[in-house]
Design a binder for these strands. Structure first.
Lengths: 225, 225
DNA sequence: CGAAAAGTTGAACTGAATCAATGCCGGTGG
DNA sequence: CCACCGGCATTGATTCAGTTCAACTTTTCG
């Protein structure tokens, strides 16, 4: 995340293989040794793990502009998988090409390091979300975060964006049952905080939603002093 | 984490200021701009955030050998605080000295990058823990993780180690009430899985405890192919 | 058009929170 | 040396948020 439009363009240019991927397809499986970095250009993907029971937990959403596994060079086997949640447009960048790109474009190198810090900040915020907030607030917080992240890549305006995932996908990220996600959404609608029909989401009163979720976007901008 | 004894020695040598710190003292506050990296040499510290309600959530434990905020150079304000959970021995390393060290000791530079990847892997595992496991299993999983991490720095043998934190501190990391932590510990004791008296913890039957918590230590070794 | 997937709702159940009391030290000062 | 105090651990009783199961509706898509 946090790549400017021009950076994205440079990335798109270099990555030979830009390909569409169906929904619910693994981009990297658990246990594999990644040889390429992956950029999500369109659609939503996620990092996830399976419990032995078969239950899946989503540890991160990857939205357009997100690049993952820049550190592939240091990585051994993946301790988790990456898979699509919707139809996606995905670019794969061989490690060599990526290293070269980072040398030639210091701004990209810096952006990637910042993106990594942002991803860590998001993970920490998700821990707080799971650890301390009731379900309704968790959902609201997620919606606020995604709004900010999608705005940064021009995919949201005026509180509106496309959320191309199912309620079950949200449930697996927020640690509640899909049934309860459904009920939480109902509450958010009834409180007049959000409008969600099909895949299009609108936050009706951003300050109010943010206050409700106790959302502060600062963690999404680690570079700001 | 993941620093060898010799690396630690090199680090201790370079860091001019090694100082003891009391329990419940902030090493870095939220909103500050860090100018030094911090190494925990003894005791437990943590990364945490406060909700406006005053509730604290712990997002990571820092145990002996853990170094944090290596990326201080890219960081603006901290989005969270770091504080001690027990009396600690702490070293502070100015950024300049750290950069120099990393240039002179490539093995340390590599170790630090790996340590960072490990910290991310731990955060992901904690997300799974909070998102999918009931309280008793969360506690067991945490105990397994700490055992592995402490063994790596010679602070645990045969399933035994010192856990210098309160039940409330565990509660704040695991997203359950302190009362329920207490009851979960009781269950673990009754099942003959752990022995916990005062601050000394023993995992009685490691394979069994690991199976119970569905703990797989692989995520703590990102370097292993 | 029909089937499958996703969303919605109700009812019963349960893990965990909360509140409140009590017990257990370890330290400190008279 | 003992009494007291404060922080931590333990336990019971009650309440509640969230799960589970199951039915049913709506949407999506071949």
């Amino acid at each position: 995340m946090c790549l400017s439009a021009s950076d994205c363009a440079a990335l798109e240019q270099i990555s030979a293989s830009v390909c569409p991927v169906e929904r619910n397809v693994d981009l990297i499986r658990e246990g594999e040794v990644p040889t390429e970095a992956i950029v999500v250009l369109d659609g939503f993907a996620c990092r996830y793990k399976h419990r032995v029971s078969g239950a899946r937990h989503i540890m991160a959403y990857l939205v357009p502009g997100d690049l993952c596994d820049v550190d592939a060079s240091y990585l051994g086997r993946m301790d988790h998988a990456i898979g699509t949640l919707s139809a996606c447009l995905v670019a794969r960048i061989p490690r060599d090409a990526l290293s070269e790109l980072m040398e030639q474009h210091p701004s990209i190198a810096r952006a990637l390091r910042l993106a990594k810090l942002t991803e860590e900040a998001i993970a920490r915020e998700w821990l707080v979300n799971l650890g301390t907030r009731p379900a309704v607030e968790r959902v609201a917080h997620l919606f606020c975060e995604l709004l900010t992240r999608l705005e940064a890549v021009g995919r949201a305006q005026e509180g509106c964006y496309t959320l191309p995932i199912t309620q079950a996908d949200m449930a697996e990220a927020l640690g509640v049952s899909n049934v309860h996600i459904n009920r939480s959404l109902k509450v958010l609608r009834q409180q007049g905080l959000v409008e969600l029909r099909g895949r299009s989401l609108k936050l009706l009163n951003l300050p109010e939603v943010r206050a409700f979720a106790e959302f502060n976007p600062d963690y999404l901008y680690p570079s700001r002093g």
